[in-house]
Nucleic acid binder design. Structure first.
Lengths: 347, 347
DNA sequence: CTGAAAGCGCTTACAG
DNA sequence: CTGAAAGCGCTTACAG
């Protein structure tokens, strides 16, 4: 077993000082050509690589960013990670992935744990519990300490920082309008409970579309789902007790479940009921029928979030020299797109 | 903006030495009750948290493990991350996620970058390219430097280290036997090209099952897919040109595609063709018909890998004191399970 | 051209 | 009971 070699060992071996070794490896003109050559050859032979931790301590930056997501099983968050990872690597950053499991405490713990030198900045999508409690002190705290934070998707307006979102309300409006344009009048909504910011916004878009088209809002066609594990029954009741010709679901799990339930009740999609989902994930693509859906473009969103964070990190260095503080936070809106597939009736 | 406070600042503020502050915060009996109280109160007020990087440098361990996966879009790898993350956090470790994108170079780069103090150990599943090239020097190198590595799923026997696998061959054997038991004789195989270790093993299990039951191997029923993007056509040809009553696919993407193609050709699943997939992911669960599949239990696999890595990390500390080196590498086999759903005909 | 010293933020054996 | 010193592995302004 050959342990990693350090500057100190090289210095001792070659009988020069640590400074000389360090400078030689950086090809400093301060050092004679001869010494440089000697040191470099030796270092190469022993496969010297500087210790990242020592560099982090010295430079006061870790070249690591952390992304905190509520869960990883949602395909959307997976694509976010992919987008973040690629941009990070391109810029020489590593990515630490933390799962909050929709828990406020875990979110807080993760942030507190890591905000002490381990990482340079956070990318975060709030847990459900955090959105429910409306307690964002942990995020404010971190920002206050001078660590940049970028929020995406599940954000809050109570915190000032860079954000990457989609226009949830508009996207939902468009999806609903799409159904209305096809002549559907009894459009059901499968949404989440209101404290989930995106669910609320999507509900808003749905309502607006109905209103814009002078369609009456039928409250019994609106289902707000709390427990994302066992909601099939509620969907079944919804479909049994009402006349419904189309469904707008705020995520793909709800959409695919609606299709399953409909089929169980002997209603065919899209012949009897048209369905639009949200998030262009694996389910929408491979379900039968494949699902018409609002594509959120998670890769783009993740990439954008990483870009914003890294820009701010690199910017800070300059700022610090000037003593100025730049606080122009931006909110980027990633465009969405309606991907038409088999679950909506062609006209 | 309130920057993080350090021991040095506390020491200065309270007019004591850094050592005294450090010891007080650790509640050392060396320090008087009074001083301890004073320091602790002050530290609490200023929300002192030790700098992780400094601790890492001092302790020569980062409490961070890195998982390198070929891609994140495969649901299986997502579940692995989930398993790893939870065990890691439970034990006070952070998880760095790196994507090799199936590229040998990226895999090497990631390992070289991180094997210099940034992390304490690796969990890795080989990229396709690495398996094809059979070049594992980067892994050997890292192990040789004394950094533990745990390989999972896509492994190689050329490297000695801890491993977590499933018995791919046995699982494939069982799946095929399951089809044979239902009376099917013309069983097609959708596999990957042979250099992907798991594809090869699953093919082996399929062949063995046929042989064990005195069924002839019909080479034209075996499709080895290289390009996982555009293979629908090959599947279509397979289904058109042959009499096939069942299909065993080595992943869920192949399985769901087979179902789509079959349906396009007017063959119903499971009435006309039964299909078994591999990996119990989102697709298998939500596809219509839902897919009978071999569950790999990614969460368990990831959890096990993390456990093995962390055990070795904690073990090393003891070893180093003894000067002994423990090299009993283990290979854990995670049991698989056939999850029966709608895509296979009931008898 | 080379090296000693200070410093990044912490811990701990040792001295007083 | 308190603190100075050495050290983790590195960089860099400064002295010679």
């Amino acid at each position: 077993m050959r342990k990693k070699v350090t500057l100190k060992q090289i210095a001792k071996e070659l009988d020069v000082s640590i400074s000389t070794v360090s400078k030689s490896l950086k090809n400093s003109v301060e050092i004679s050509e001869e010494t440089r050559q000697k040191v470099q050859a030796f270092a190469k032979f022993y496969n010297y690589k500087p210790n990242n931790i020592a560099l982090s301590l010295k430079n006061r930056k870790s070249k690591t960013i952390c992304i905190i997501i509520p869960e990883i099983i949602h395909h959307f968050f997976t694509t976010i990670i992919s987008g973040v990872e690629h941009v990070a690597k391109e810029n020489g950053y590593n990515v630490l992935v933390c799962l909050s499991d929709e828990s406020f405490d875990k979110e807080v713990l993760n942030m507190e744990m890591l905000a002490n030198g381990s990482i340079d900045g956070f990318i975060i999508s709030l847990s459900k519990e955090t959105q429910q409690k409306k307690d964002f002190h942990h995020i404010a705290e971190v920002i206050n300490q001078g660590m940049p934070v970028v929020m995406f998707d599940r954000i809050t307006n109570e915190i000032l920082c860079d954000k990457v979102i989609i226009d949830d309300s508009l996207a939902a409006f468009n999806a609903t309008q799409f159904l209305i344009d096809k002549g559907f009048k009894n459009i059901a909504l499968l949404s989440t409970i209101d404290y989930v910011s995106v669910g609320k916004l999507r509900t808003k878009g749905y309502l607006k579309a109905l209103k814009n088209n002078d369609l009456e809002v039928n409250e019994s066609l609106i289902l707000k789902i709390e427990d994302t594990e066992n909601f099939e029954k509620s969907v079944e009741e919804l479909l049994t007790n009402n006349t419904i010709d189309a469904i707008f679901a705020v995520n793909e799990l709800f959409a695919v479940t609606a299709i399953k339930v409909a089929s169980k009740l002997g209603k065919k999609v899209p012949e009897d009921i048209s369905v639009i989902g949200f998030t262009d994930g694996i389910i929408s693509k491979y379900s039968t029928p494949s699902i018409t859906t609002v594509s959120q473009n998670g890769i783009k969103m993740g990439a954008k979030a990483a870009k914003m964070l890294i820009e701010r990190l690199e910017m800070e260095e300059i700022e610090n020299e000037d003593g100025e503080i730049e606080e122009h936070y931006r909110t980027e809106v990633i465009e969405t797109e309606l991907v038409e597939r088999e679950s909506t009736k062609k006209i």
